[in-house]
């Protein structure tokens, strides 16, 4: 018989990620299950707000949720390893692959998702810095600039780098940049494209900032109630493959879209990739110390394998 699964998604239906990641993924599931699974997609927070998606999945309000884990510090603290700044992440696709492999390899990480069934884990490429009035080339350039970031590790990193971390809600970011409430922000291409930030920010510096991650999690009971062949069919296009698809299509591919959008409007985007010596300088003040702090915090919580997880992460990313 036919099974209907509901998917709650905070991204608007016309957004880059909905069109290039969510819809293809849904299509793959429906194809892999030969039409036995029908996905009802509720984009744009119509079923549940982004901040409550994790709760909604666990409570069974929705069957599958697009979860952004940056909303919930300390809920999946070991997975947070992937958000440490200065990790050698070359692309979102690679990062998502490593994240899924970490999940498979470490029981302690699997334990963090015990109340749900993760179908895919995604992560962004490392955020870069965009600024409105001057290009950031060195640590000294960054000093004292008000940079919009989210709470947690990105805030800690900005403090360590000497910038002034500032929390501004996403809908206000465009005007905050335009009017100079903030001098810049840490961002992925997906946001530059979705919020047309190229209209207000000219300078883009590829710097070793932290990345964000999230998941597509299914309600555990609902998942367990599905026949085994359906579960296998869904996982055949999810899991490692699905995670890579999400990383690639949601984040990596958005770069070209942002560049095209800027070009169509004749906006100048000046891109600057920091030389290795400067990257090393940044990581010295704001990566290694935060890595050690993270390991220490996890060990204090009783996760003895924290160091091992960090080392495995770096090793797999360098692979």
């Amino acid at each position: 018989q036919e099974v209907t699964l509901t998917v709650a998604d905070q991204n608007p239906p016309t957004a880059w990620g909905s069109v290039h990641a969510m819809q293809p993924w849904i299509k793959k599931i429906e194809e892999a299950t030969k039409g036995r699974v029908k996905i009802e997609h509720y984009p744009g927070q119509t079923m549940v707000k982004g901040t409550e998606t994790w709760n909604a999945v666990r409570a069974g309000v929705v069957d599958i949720g697009w979860c952004f884990h940056g909303y919930w510090p300390d809920v999946t603290p070991l997975s947070d390893v992937i958000t440490l700044p200065g990790l050698p992440i070359t692309s979102a696709e690679k990062g998502s692959e490593v994240l899924w492999k970490l999940y498979e390899r470490f029981p302690a990480i699997r334990e963090e998702y015990a109340e749900t069934q993760p179908l895919a884990l995604w992560m962004s490429h490392p955020y870069f810095i965009l600024t409105t009035s001057k290009q950031v080339k060195t640590l000294e350039d960054l000093k004292g600039l008000k940079i919009r970031v989210t709470g947690g590790p990105p805030t800690e990193q900005m403090k360590a780098l000497g910038a002034v971390p500032t929390l501004v809600p996403m809908p206000d970011v465009y005007q905050a940049l335009d009017k100079g409430v903030v001098d810049g922000m840490g961002a992925p291409w997906e946001a530059v494209n979705a919020f047309r930030l190229y209209e207000v920010a000219k300078y883009y510096t590829i710097a070793p900032l932290s990345a964000v991650y999230g998941s597509l999690c299914a309600n555990k009971q609902k998942w367990d109630s599905l026949p085994m062949d359906i579960r296998n069919a869904i996982m055949s296009v999810s899991g490692l493959e699905g995670s890579k698809l999400w990383g690639r299509n949601f984040f990596d591919a958005a770069e070209q879209a942002a560049l095209d959008g800027a070009e169509a409007e004749n906006r100048e985007m000046i891109r600057y990739a920091m030389p290795t010596e400067e990257v090393v300088r940044w990581n010295k003040v704001a990566a290694q110390p935060l890595w050690d702090a993270w390991v220490k915090k996890m060990e204090a919580k009783g996760h003895k394998e924290a160091r091992q997880i960090l080392e495995a992460t770096i090793e797999m990313l360098n692979d």
């Binding site: 510090p73 300390d74 809920v75």
Partner: peptide, 11 residues
């Protein structure tokens, strides 16, 4: 449920 959650404000 929320009382037993470890979620904290990020700042």
């Amino acid at each position: 449920r929320s009382l037993f959650e470890p979620t904290k404000l990020s700042a």
